[in-house]
């Protein structure tokens, strides 16, 4: 069996929250939050290591009630892989085409929403919410204060700021 055609969804180190029409995934290893739209979520849930890409396409087609191609599934797999949401990284099968070209092609061929994963990295430390407070200059060099007005100066009012 070629595993690249039987993708497996990653489970460890993830916290999953179902939201109406979407799925939220928080990656505890990378502090990345992901929002999978319905199509991406449907495909991710189908990645059980036993179902092939073409079978996933058929499953999605049945659930969505509209024509879905293998490229549609590969588009989701490409993003799932890029965001480390699969057990093994997979390379999409889009010879000579960019992701944008594939999206355009798929978008014209189906009525089903294109799979999309939106992601955002959260600061590891909650201290980033410490309102840029400091006692000494070195406090401002901490990663938690990276977004403060100054990362080198702790002013006399106790801010990492000029």
């Amino acid at each position: 069996m070629n595993n690249s055609h039987f993708p497996i969804a990653r489970k460890n180190g993830l916290v999953v929250q179902e939201v109406p029409d979407e799925v939220l995934v928080y990656d505890l290893e990378t502090n990345k939050a992901h929002c999978l739209n319905q199509s991406a979520a449907m495909i991710w849930r189908s990645c059980d290591g036993k179902t092939s890409v073409s079978e996933i396409a058929t499953l999605v087609e049945e659930q969505a009630g509209n024509k879905v191609t293998e490229d549609f599934v590969w588009l989701a797999i490409d993003q799932l892989s890029e965001n480390n949401l699969l057990e093994k990284q997979l390379t999409p099968n889009f010879p000579g085409q960019s992701r944008r070209e594939v999206i355009k092609k798929i978008g014209l061929a189906t009525m089903v929403a294109i799979p999309v994963i939106a992601s955002l990295v959260a600061p590891q430390s909650a201290l980033a919410a410490n309102s840029c407070r400091c006692n000494q200059n070195s406090d401002c060099g901490l990663p938690a204060n990276a977004q403060c007005p100054s990362t080198t100066v702790c002013n006399s009012a106790g801010f990492c700021a000029p």
Binding site: V23, L24, S119
Partner: peptide, 15 residues
């Protein structure tokens, strides 16, 4: 979902 991922970086007990 999109809103929640924007709120997560400001959510103190996220970890």
């Amino acid at each position: 979902g999109q809103g929640i991922i924007e709120m997560i970086p400001h959510t103190i007990p996220r970890r």
